[in-house]
Write a protein that binds this DNA or RNA. Sequence first.
DNA 1: TCCGCATGTGCAAGCGCTTACGACAATTCC
DNA 2: GGAATTGTCGTAAGCGCTTGCACATGCGGA
Lengths: 333, 333
Amino acid sequence: MTLEEVARRAGVSTATVSRVLNNAGVVKESTRRKVLEACRELRYHPNLHARSLAGGKSRTLGMIVSNIQNPFFLDIFCSLESVAFQHNYEVVVEHTDYRPTRLVAAVRSMLGRRVAGLAVIVSEMEPSLIEELSASNIPVVFYDVGHPARNITNIKVRYEKGMQRTVEYLYSLGHRRMAFVGHHAGLDPLHERLRAFLDTMGRYCGEVRYTTAVSTDSPGGGRQAAHQLLASGFEPTAILCVNDFMALGVIRELRERGLSIPGDVSVTGFDNIGISEFTCPALTTVNIPRRRIGEMAFEILVQGQSSAMNSEREILIDPELVVRESTGPAPEN
Amino acid sequence: MTLEEVARRAGVSTATVSRVLNNAGVVKESTRRKVLEACRELRYHPNLHARSLAGGKSRTLGMIVSNIQNPFFLDIFCSLESVAFQHNYEVVVEHTDYRPTRLVAAVRSMLGRRVAGLAVIVSEMEPSLIEELSASNIPVVFYDVGHPARNITNIKVRYEKGMQRTVEYLYSLGHRRMAFVGHHAGLDPLHERLRAFLDTMGRYCGEVRYTTAVSTDSPGGGRQAAHQLLASGFEPTAILCVNDFMALGVIRELRERGLSIPGDVSVTGFDNIGISEFTCPALTTVNIPRRRIGEMAFEILVQGQSSAMNSEREILIDPELVVRESTGPAPEN
DNA sequence: TCCGCATGTGCAAGCGCTTACGACAATTCC
DNA sequence: GGAATTGTCGTAAGCGCTTGCACATGCGGA
């Protein structure tokens, strides 16, 4: 089914069919109806590839995330998708599993798709990508990685602040043995969080003991990390997780061992994903406004585009502690 | 950046460039290198739209789900995406929020993209879609909805069996007051599950009392449903949820009220999503093999395609009960 | 009656790529 | 030594659509 067949059927030219299908130009009502009827009869579906090839412009946005199974990323996607949908845009998503090579492939794929804008919400990075994207002339927003450039806006969360806040909160509750559970410590943004933990801990030097464990970004990974942690003989009174997703597993492992939360061990997460409210006990965490991030991304990519590409800037977000039930005073002993 | 510019730069024709980029035909090693270098220098990214327009064939699959926030759907997507990736396919996903109109729009969009195959994993339906897809000549797999046709394969889970099994299991534990928590009872497949519950209950007529509550497909929805349920004065000793996602909220609400699980109330889910193992208590549920469903979908869409489109058939899956900690003997009183 | 101006359509030139097909060299064979 | 191969590459015709432009009508006003 092509435009031409529809045109023939309706007894008009392809130009006219195109016009009615795009509500562009003026078309007599009677011919418009004829065309629409022909479309229906022939079950015509315009070829989107041909359309964007000829049109030259695109109404699709691209989004790349590290791990779409982690609700943190998924929520941002949903938020972006939702506002995009309202504005008649669509967004295609790709995920990288935290692997730089897949990131590169994903970016290339997006560039090949000629997306109208690209949101890169990942933790891994490949240096050459920055210039590649910067040279691409499409609006880009990075989250957590990269740095601003002509057409690149950066959104960053002050993770250190959140981490610092958490540590201090726990310290004030009397905790003196803490552990950090993370994943992919080799990746910059993730490493940064680990370091924020270590730095803050360093300030209580001599007074506080701590250790770290690393696994994969999933509840199972969190559980495994907790397992290692406890098997090592270190008995933390508080475990800080790099994100809520892993915290789910940490909680599970602790309960499995008969440890009460927060009676014996306090647990904190990061991100404040939807289900962190539904864990038991409900998770103390640090909120990151995912909905707003998605909305900002859309604005930057679509609106910012009109503002002559001068979107070189950095946006900083201060996360805030959300205290729920998984934290409490350190046990006496 | 177009093929032509690259060709000019490399001092060859566009045909040659195309050949090296596609590893098609034979090209002298020296020219191949020249071309690749030109691509790199010019940061050339082939226009995928032009490619599929000219090529006529597509290596992207489409997938439509009702609610991508529900891990059940997300898992199937990830599974499909994973095998597709291994075979050098990509998959674009769209979600409908259980709305038939969005389903129609999504299907049209996929058809416009000229996907190589389409997986429709939804609960809502629009009758006309079946024939529209059937006429489209692309391989299609439906999950839960629709019926087989020339190019349409149907995957169905015998929900009734799972539900029946669950009810009987609870009955055997002494439960005589049960409740069902669901969502979108107006949609066929969902209604079917509700009816499976009612039918099974009907068999114990007079002996067992029951009621139902409906909300939205989310933990929050589950919580709300549980709230209604308990506010109604009915005191179930077991609550059966249409899926694990909602069960999360049900559990939360029960705990909030100080009810012990399974001491006071048993809870069951459906789907066996990843985190149902990490709830507390771990959720008794009915397993649906999402990984296998994703893999089957790929095979049907890609391999089945070669088998002359004679894929008209229905695949039935028997779900199985997974007993964990959220169920136990009914309380004495 | 003729001109000017809306209002509706058709023509045709691309958009960037793939892919027969044929052209031309460099071998190879009898 | 000429013909038949073989290996490389260029030419050009689309793929299905959008869109600037020209053209055809119908109308009122001069």
